[in-house]
Design a protein around this nucleic acid. Structure first.
Lengths: 143, 143
DNA sequence: CTGTGTTACTATCATTTTGATACGAAGTCA
DNA sequence: TGACTTCGTATCAAAATGATAGTAACACAG
């Protein structure tokens, strides 16, 4: 995948780091409150080698933060950083796509904790107020 | 990665198909108007074997559609389907994250074709009107 | 203290995926 | 005829993945 991280396209920049399935699922679980190695492992059914690597890169890349929650025995947990929390909208849009286009059968639902209503995400351009994808786009190369 | 596609989580369902870097970048290019094998290959610097495979799965999964645009010589192009176009909000949120958190140096900008203004995407819950991530979420298992 | 359990890993290694390079097929164009 | 274009396939080395087993460092019950 080489030098995609140095592309001028912001999508490519992101994809270089979070463009793999396990990272996305780890971020999902972290967003839903999981913090510990074994919690992630059980939730995902991931091999521990993979999980170690993914947690390490997500930590290096500043999406997760490793914090010692017990000195004896030494135990660490992984917490979302600001950058990690900022990823939540991406996950919700991915989930929304999945519900629409891969939504056969029973699905987990994400609801607002206060109202109890299912969250219905849309992406909007704050500049025009229009929904993303409803107006033509132009690409402007880095100046 | 096994049976993630059968998970009850809509995010996992999506991730099973589009949770890899090349697919995301192909969808980006397709969203920006590319349609042909060689266009994708040159834009991405991807090995042709990879590109063939990715285009095939994206087509099987209903995100792209193969269409013959010339009979002699036989030439095919790949067009976004409805499901593929519905993926655009995901790409924009990914791009927005990249701009915020991986945005050092010059970046390509995406602007509204009419106003010329840079698109500033946000994800909002239509139910509450609040920005995604600003209110606590609860997960409800598939019933 | 001994044995069992918990948490967070590392080691090993077969299998799978990737990616680079070369080549092919089916034409066009000069 | 020969060069060029477009859309791939063939081959194969290198890298990533994933299953399984083992380790380290402790707690806690008896």
């Amino acid at each position: 995948m080489k030098n995609v991280a140095e592309a001028t396209c912001p999508i490519a920049r992101s994809v270089a780091f979070v463009g793999d399935a396990w990272s996305l699922l780890i971020l999902r679980d972290a967003s839903l409150g999981l913090t510990r190695f074994d919690d992630f492992r059980k939730s995902l059914g991931i091999a521990p080698t993979m999980l170690t690597r993914r947690l390490a890169t997500l930590t290096e890349e500043g999406l997760l933060e490793k914090r010692r929650y017990s000195e004896r025995p030494p135990r660490d947990e992984y917490l979302l950083t600001g950058a990690g929390r900022d990823f939540l909208p991406v996950l919700f849009m991915i989930g929304d796509w999945g519900r629409k286009h891969r939504g056969k059968g029973k699905l987990t639902r994400f609801v607002d904790a206060e109202t109890g209503e299912e969250i219905q995400p849309i992406a909007v351009d704050t500049a025009t107020g229009a929904r993303i994808g409803t107006r033509p786009i132009r690409v402007v190369a880095a100046e």
